[in-house]
Amino acid sequence: MQDMHPIQHWDPEAPGDDGQLELPGIALDRSDELLESLEELEDVLGKVQLTAEEVELLRRFRRTTAENRRMILQLLAR
């Protein structure tokens, strides 16, 4: 605890401080790059998002007994 630095007070009236937080890796002056990154992220998320059928299978898998889950996993390993 002795090595901790005091928290700096945020002063919105300070010169050069427009009140906008800066996130690492995101530059606001390159909005076209941000839009491209968001579109790419949306594509990747769409690929890994479960279908309705997969959600139902997962729900059923979770509700079954431990013995049935073991048998299912053994069948999938083949």
Rank of each mutant, 00 (worst) to 15 (best):
M1G: 11
M1H: 10
M1N: 03
Q2E: 07
Q2D: 05
D3L: 11
D3Q: 13
M4Q: 14
M4L: 15
M4F: 05
H5A: 15
H5F: 12
H5I: 12
I7C: 13
I7K: 14
I7V: 15
I7N: 15
H9D: 08
H9Q: 07
W10C: 06
W10S: 05
D11N: 11
D11L: 02
D11I: 03
D11P: 01
P12Y: 10
E13I: 05
P15C: 06
P15F: 04
P15M: 03
G16W: 02
G16Q: 05
G16S: 10
D17L: 01
D17T: 04
D18K: 01
D18E: 07
D18I: 03
G19N: 09
Q20E: 02
Q20N: 00
Q20S: 04
Q20D: 05
L21Y: 05
E22I: 04
P24L: 12
P24S: 08
P24M: 08
P24G: 10
G25R: 11
G25W: 09
G25H: 07
I26Q: 03
I26D: 04
A27N: 11
A27M: 06
A27S: 06
L28R: 13
D29G: 05
D29L: 09
R30E: 00
S31C: 11
S31Y: 07
D32G: 07
D32R: 15
D32C: 09
D32Q: 15
D32S: 13
E33L: 14
E33R: 13
E33P: 02
L34W: 00
L34I: 11
L34Y: 00
E36F: 00
E36D: 09
S37T: 03
L38K: 02
L38T: 02
E40K: 10
E40Q: 14
L41N: 02
L41V: 03
L41Q: 12
D43S: 14
L45D: 06
G46I: 03
G46S: 08
K47G: 13
V48L: 12
V48T: 14
V48H: 09
L50F: 00
L50K: 10
T51P: 02
T51N: 04
T51G: 09
A52Q: 15
A52E: 15
E53C: 02
E53Y: 12
E54A: 06
E54N: 08
E54T: 00
V55S: 08
V55G: 03
L58R: 05
R59L: 07
R59M: 04
R59Y: 01
F61Q: 03
F61W: 09
R62F: 06
R62P: 02
R62W: 01
R63V: 00
R63H: 03
R63C: 05
T64Q: 11
T65E: 10
T65C: 11
T65P: 02
T65M: 14
E67N: 14
E67S: 13
N68A: 13
N68E: 15
N68D: 12
R69D: 10
R69G: 11
R69Q: 15
R69H: 07
R69M: 07
R70K: 07
R70G: 04
R70P: 00
M71S: 14
M71C: 06
I72P: 00
I72K: 09
L73E: 03
L73C: 07
L73T: 00
L73I: 01
Q74C: 00
Q74F: 00
Q74W: 00
L75Y: 02
L75R: 12
L75G: 01
L76R: 08
A77E: 07
A77K: 10
A77S: 13
A77D: 07
R78L: 09
